[in-house]
Simulated scan of single mutants.
Amino acid sequence: MEIGIFGLPLSGKSTLFTLLTGVEPHSSHKNEAHTAVARVHDRRVDELSKIFSPKKTVYATVSFTDIPGYDLSANQKEKNRILQFIQNSEAVLAVVRAFKDPSVPWPTEAYTPVKQLETIETELFVRDMEVVENRLVRLEEAKKKRKLSSEEERETELLHIIEKGFEDNSFASQLELSEEDKKLLGSLSLFTAKPIIVAINIDEEQLSSGNYAEREVLIQKIEQNGFAHIELSGKIEAELVELSEEDRELFMEDLGISESGIERLSGVVYQHMGLISFFTVGEDEVRAWTIKKNTPAKEAAGKIHTDLERSFIRAEVIPYEEFMTIGSLQEAKAKGLVKVVGKEEIVKDGDIFHVRANA
């Protein structure tokens, strides 16, 4: 899974990328995109690792791409180049600045958080409008020469629905499309069809007060568009990284938070994208695996290894919370708490999962 980090210059976008991945983009390549892998923070993996003391602990991961700042004063060719970096992203993490700092200029023509979000929305709309219009023209030209296939007829219908939505400032992601419809539109890679998470970059005072300029209006706009959001402070997150575990806990206690923003971000991304984690455990390895919600057991087994999906017989499953009340698989089995399930059983978030398969 790859998430593109997109925003206007000086919004704190690259700081967030570094905090997520531990990678500092090279200053001499600031106009290029940088991709790196981030570990998905999951305290359940930590607790399972304490119990099993495995040789290896493997967390789920997400790839983030730090897209160059979208400069409104740039020429159209440069703007198009930057937008192209969103093409291969499965989701967009849009960074909006709310923090106050006289030494950091506000983005050109976007001096408020709401204006920044509106600017990002507009740029995504404009790009997709052009893509939709061009595709409709091509379909219309094809229709003059031959009868359109049923797939092309359906695509035309969907594109007109999306076009109408654009007139009402409605993102394509708000349409409840079937998987088949999504495949039909997949080649267009519509930016407004991608899941969008808005990261609002605030300062310490704003974090403590729980308020900043235009907060209510900003949150309302985010929710109206079907986006997810998270409020965090890049400056505070950077300070937390530098502290020892003990000092970090004390600092977080003073701030009135139990988790850092970076840790919370994983949960927001997963929830908005309809993702969950299941776990495999043992003395050799404790590992988190990422799947879509409502994935059946046989398909989940294929996430571990394609051979396991092909030769799947049954799976042994126990929910994480239930397992933690006992702390032993052997005991859990003895008490009948480990359920044996078939291939159609839906895997749930936090399930500890063991596959029975043909040799």
Rank of each mutant, 00 (worst) to 15 (best):
E2R: 10
E2N: 15
L10W: 04
T15P: 05
F17D: 01
T18Y: 05
G22F: 07
E24Y: 09
A36E: 02
R39C: 06
R39K: 15
R39P: 03
R39A: 09
V40T: 08
R44L: 06
E47N: 14
T57E: 05
T57K: 08
V58W: 06
T61G: 05
T65H: 01
T65Q: 05
S73Q: 05
R81W: 05
Q87R: 10
N88Q: 12
N88C: 03
E90G: 15
V92R: 06
V96E: 02
S103Y: 07
P105Q: 13
W106R: 06
T108N: 09
T112V: 06
K115A: 14
T122R: 13
V126D: 03
D128C: 07
M129H: 06
E130A: 13
E130I: 01
V131S: 06
V131F: 06
R135V: 01
R138N: 07
R138V: 01
L139C: 05
K145F: 09
S150R: 12
R154N: 01
H160M: 10
N169F: 13
F171E: 04
A172R: 04
Q174N: 14
E179F: 08
E180S: 15
K183P: 02
K183H: 10
S189C: 08
F191A: 15
V198D: 04
I200F: 11
I202K: 11
I202C: 14
E205I: 12
N211L: 01
Y212W: 14
R215E: 03
V217H: 08
Q224H: 11
Q224V: 07
A228E: 07
S244G: 12
E246D: 12
D254C: 04
D254K: 06
I257D: 11
G261T: 13
E263T: 12
V269P: 00
M273F: 06
G274K: 04
L275W: 10
L275N: 03
L275S: 03
S277I: 02
S277G: 05
V281D: 00
E283P: 08
T290V: 06
A297K: 01
A300Y: 00
L308C: 00
A315P: 11
V317E: 01
F323I: 10
M324Y: 12
T325D: 11
L329S: 04
Q330F: 04
G336C: 00
V341Q: 03
G342T: 09
V347A: 02
K348M: 09
I352G: 03
H354Y: 10
